[in-house]
Design a protein around this nucleic acid. Structure first.
Lengths: 214, 214
DNA sequence: AGGAAAAATGTCCAATTGTTCAGTTGTAGG
DNA sequence: CCTACAACTGAACAATTGGACATTTTTCCT
């Protein structure tokens, strides 16, 4: 399916070139790699002249930085389906679906995390979104009575991140979901062990263990 | 520290150009990205003429494939410090040190896992090493009395993978180690819950809980 | 020693690259 | 309407790229 000119999508209006270029940059990186992030490739996908990239961003590096900011701003940072509910079963709900829905953004972000190893000016953005995720996760775990410290929060974040990375590259959303259920189980047992309130039933739905199959 | 000509390392002998190029390719990708994996960059780092790349590998793509094979063959696939011991405390021991010791190989492999999304011929290698890791992990977990299924093994693998990825990009080996301790704790509690033998002391050191601080 | 095969080199080329620039088109405010 | 300014374009250019090729060097075998 060869897409001509406007490369899939409605006609663009005057003044919308910049955003079109940012979206195009994310897509190009996601499905052709940083190697093929060229003025011409991005411009073609955005349906504009390639000189417009230089006009808006000045350089290829600046385009990449702007695209990362753009991608992160449009990213979902909710970690739970019912934030603040303390329900572990709501944690990471829909994660596999989210990856399936827009693999482009995910792939782009992983590419840029690796790139940030070599481009220090990208690091603040990477560190910032990590902190955002981890803070949200820490709050959820606390509400669930897990009594998390930095290390525990980190390893759970790492697990979710690893699951996303694996699904993105090798596939299989089903395995992701089943693995998330195991992760929740692990948290529940720790929760029961460490929270005496839950054991005596005082904390209500906290640390409730539900059926593993569904 | 500008390194001239031979670019750090003793003088190479006739017949060793191929391996030198493979090592150089891994290093170039790791610290300059796939974008700068060029005949000339690799040849410079290997201390040979750039035409030698084409002579040995035929094309840039073939060089990349060969470099991936080379990197995976030289990779450590032991998951435990005492394989088969059933000791959870030996699981993932030295992981942060391993990443610190050769970040090049790790970074190279992550770059190529992402690349395998676009180059189907790379996928078999990626899938293969994943299977190797997961199988080894599954065996260790079984010896430890964790009674793992595919999903549990997968999520633990994902956690370790996520920790490595994070350490590689954002840093902090200390956090990795402390997170691994939390991971082991989680496994031990599950182990105790699911393994009646451990509870009655029949299984010996299986599922033994040790002090969290050290 | 001699000759064949493999390893290694230097040179060449068309294609693509990032970037510059002079010019054109569209738009908002007076 | 018109003018100033931003968005946008097409053409140009030097540098770098992957790859091809003919040639030289090294090694190994008889």
């Amino acid at each position: 399916m060869a897409v001509s000119a406007r490369e899939s999508g409605g006609s663009r209006r005057y003044g919308q070139g910049r955003e079109a270029l940012l979206q195009a940059a994310v897509q190009v990186v996601a499905d052709q790699g940083l190697r093929n992030l060229t003025y011409r490739a991005v411009a073609r996908k955005a349906g504009v002249a390639h000189a417009l990239v230089a006009h808006h961003f000045g350089s290829r590096e600046a385009l990449l930085t702007a695209a990362l900011r753009f991608s992160l701003d449009n990213s979902v940072t909710t970690i739970s389906a019912r934030p603040g509910s303390g329900d572990l079963d709501a944690l990471f709900v829909g994660l596999s679906t989210l990856v399936e829905a827009n693999p482009h953004d995910q792939a782009f972000q992983y590419e840029l995390i690796l790139e940030s190893r070599r481009r220090p000016e990208l690091r603040p953005y990477v560190v910032d979104i990590y902190q955002t995720y981890v803070n949200a996760l820490h709050a959820e775990l606390e509400h669930a009575g897990v009594q998390p410290d930095v290390a525990l929060t980190h390893v759970i974040y790492a697990a979710a991140d690893g699951l996303v990375f694996h699904q993105l590259t090798i596939g299989n959303p089903d395995l992701t979901e089943r693995s998330l259920q195991r992760l929740r189980s692990l948290l529940k047992t720790r929760c029961q062990d460490s929270d005496p309130a839950a054991a005596t039933g005082i904390a209500g739905r906290r640390c409730e263990e539900r059926g593993l199959q569904e």
